[in-house]
Design a binder for these strands. Structure first.
Lengths: 183, 183
DNA sequence: TTATAGTTTCAGAAATTACTGAAAATTCAG
DNA sequence: CTGAATTTTCAGTAATTTCTGAAACTATAA
């Protein structure tokens, strides 16, 4: 691995975390190396940096592009494909949240929607379905909230985050103004 | 698999989603079967329901307990261990968020904290470190926000979610009252 | 104690996932 | 077109993860 000591530590860390984040080591490492690179890299640069096969890099880049965490760019007078990560960390944050929702939440949400349409056959099914209904309600709410958050501007989101728990006081105030919520 | 058709569909879905959520199929299925069960189950009940080995169930239960998504309970006059999922979906939501943060975010946050202490060796390292600083800043902010959210009561969190994007209007209002944020 | 019920551990087998190298496909300059 | 440069695909292999059955361990009843 042909990287400065600090860069190498970063890349190795991302490789190790990969499995917890649902990608394999190489994918984590490719992302890391692109994230800290001062300019876009081509696939062979990545092969050199990581010491993995060309085909592995090709597959990893494809996966990262499907997550929209990496995009292809071109350099004038060079046929090769170059790759970079979006530079704005807020953009990355949104993208990641959106993709995670699509892959980890949506399928279950639509499964539950389906399952709730069925007529329960007996008491056990009636109980199971009631639990599913609770789960659906919560996921649906959280999901919609993510949708809303997603539409906020980075600045608004940032102030929201910086407010932190104080938001609850603002909320209480707002609730007082308009009665007790929307129920 | 000895379950009603609806329960079986639910269990199979959780098994399939397991890998996306970072657990194996059996762990996902065990969680599902406990979630919809009307009362706590013992390990052999789970073996019967899922048709996997006793040892696999034992390991899966251990993992789910480490996630605090399943807890052990006892029945009067029965030596066997029984297991149940927390019934309150909001509690489950918090627990999951907290555990995910601990496993998926904290290690990177502390890696970055460390890496930012090093003196950069050259320009490339200086640039890499600057990118890491940006990443650290964002993760730290989001992390602290999750901390704050975590401390809200389920009711407050629920109203916050139901407000959705409207929160930004409240925020703007609050910002007007107190100048432009905290900078 | 000892016997029994219940649970966990763990080495090896089975299944799955990741990775490679070679071949195929694509792109583009000449 | 042709052919060189580049990228992608894919079958086979390597590595990793999951699962099992047997043995070890623990707790309790008699």
């Amino acid at each position: 691995m042909n990287l400065s000591p600090l860069a190498e530590r970063f890349v190795l860390h991302f490789g190790e975390m990969g499995s917890r984040w649902g990608v394999n080591r190489t994918v984590g490492q490719i992302y890391a190396v692109l994230f800290i690179a001062p300019s876009p890299l081509n696939a062979d640069d990545i092969v050199d940096a990581l010491g993995v096969s060309r085909s592995n890099v090709s597959m990893g880049l494809k996966e990262l592009q499907s997550w929209r965490l990496v995009r292809m760019v071109h350099q004038a007078g060079d046929r090769r494909d170059y790759f970079e990560t979006p530079k704005d960390v807020w953009e990355i944050f949104r993208t990641l949240a959106e993709e995670k929702r699509k892959r980890e939440i949506e399928p279950t949400l639509s499964f539950l929607r389906d399952a709730l349409m069925d007529a329960p056959g007996d008491d056990a099914e009636r109980h199971a379905q009631e639990k599913m209904r609770q789960m659906h309600e919560l996921i649906d709410l959280a999901n919609g909230w993510f949708d809303d958050i997603h539409e906020l501007s980075p600045q608004t989101l940032e102030s929201l985050m910086r407010m932190g728990a104080k938001v609850s006081r603002v909320l209480e105030f707002a609730n007082q103004l308009r009665g007790v919520g929307r129920e």
